[in-house]
Design a protein around this nucleic acid. Structure first.
Lengths: 233, 233
DNA sequence: AGATCAGGTAAACGCCGCGTGAACATTTCG
DNA sequence: CGAAATGTTCACGCGGCGTTTACCTGATCT
């Protein structure tokens, strides 16, 4: 997956610096905006994954920013975390009703903030994430570059193998019937015997090497990509 | 979707009452547990969507509860919100690292808590989340992943065993004749002796281990999955 | 208590699903 | 056009799964 992009909308220069530094340290890509309208523009331009939003902003109020962001369908998936000095309960309620995902009152610990981001992000990762990169269990697939990697080794896959692996990795744990795999990977109109899938799976497993066990056989059903936290002795 | 189920694990009787009342008012279905082990048991039995978890609990510590809940593959979608009197930063960090989704310090406003739940739930709803999972009495079945779990242990079932268990768990308390089970689980056209079901039931019970009693024999009729709140001494 | 019947248990066996290697067909590319 | 790579089909063998069979255990009724 590409690096997580965080947009910080904060007019307090010093706080912005602190946040920016710590976020970068934590491996995030950071964008800064000093007021509401700049923040809205940046958000639309660069589609960040997370927005840290101060409520007291010049030009455009923070809540208004929040509302406008949520109103943009293209930014639906974005996380919005409100930062504010006001601990009033009423403010929090308004914030949430505007579609904020979290509400943190100043002063706050940067570490805790980072953990909150992480917790929210973990939730956010949905199977139908149709971004161009998919990673699971040490295997990643880059649709744009048409590249697949197992561990630190690049895989040389044929087109069918690539598509097949992609379908499986996109939804780890989900079991696919051979017919589903044919439709999804080779095209709905591919008139092909089901056993064809077996053969592709076979060559895939060969090329996966030590990662071959990541593709599990579900007897009587089809195949499945191994999902985390499942012990299969 | 069915109503959202919230499990409150809290030993303070009064607070539990307040939460319960407000949650019900807000349209949630509420379950209560007064200590950690009861909480774990309830969670496994009824697979709630959200868990409100006090940290200071008798018998089993809240953090331990959190860790165990996250370790259960059948409960991965569940939201965990920690409630605590301790506002220490270190606690929060530990909480998040245990997989909690949010961390709320007492005293807190119930309204704000409700909004937090709503915000998290909104995030949680993934578009392609039609994984029809069924859970009852600590046994859950995931048709999409083709996986079954008893308590916190994954079951390795054959296809017939899986289908059979699914039929039973889908309607706890309902008694099925052997013929019905053959039709429903093995296909209407399966020409098979009724005793075949007995054999599958047997291996199922073996694999279920301590949960074997969940499949009840109805003499002269067939089999039945145990129904909640029916004490059979 | 004994007869009778329903369900539990263990083992035997045949078939089917899957893996595998190779042959055949198709596309790509020099 | 020929060669190499890719995709598909076929044939075979193994192992596991489902079914049957036979026998045992325990419940129910008179």
């Amino acid at each position: 997956m590409a690096r997580t992009k965080v947009l910080v909308i904060e007019d307090d220069r010093e706080l912005a610096e602190v946040l920016s530094y710590n976020l970068r340290q934590a491996g995030y890509e950071v964008l800064l905006a000093r007021d509401g309208s700049e923040g809205l523009a940046q958000a639309q331009n660069s589609a960040p994954d997370v927005v840290l939003l101060d409520l007291m902003l010049p030009l455009v109020d923070g809540l208004e920013v929040c509302r406008r962001l949520r109103g943009n369908p293209a930014l639906r998936e974005m996380l919005i975390i409100i930062l504010t000095a006001r601990a009033e309960e009423a403010d929090q309620l308004v914030g949430f009703s505007m579609g904020a995902d979290d509400y943190v009152t100043k002063p706050f610990s940067v570490k805790v903030l980072l953990e909150r981001i992480k917790a929210l992000r973990r939730r956010q990762q949905s199977p139908s994430d149709d971004s161009d990169m998919v990673t699971s269990q040490g295997i990643s697939i880059d649709r744009q570059r048409h590249r697949a990697v197992a561990g630190d080794r690049a895989l040389e896959l044929t087109l069918s193998e690539f598509k097949l692996l992609e379908v499986l990795v996109r939804q780890p744990g989900r079991a696919f019937s051979r017919t589903e795999l044919i439709d999804a990977a080779l095209g709905d109109d591919a008139m092909v015997l089901e056993r064809t899938i077996d053969v592709h799976i076979r060559s895939l497993r060969q090329k996966l090497g030590e990662y071959s066990e990541m593709i599990e056989t579900v007897r009587g059903v089809g195949y499945r990509f191994r999902e985390p936290n499942f012990s299969t002795p």
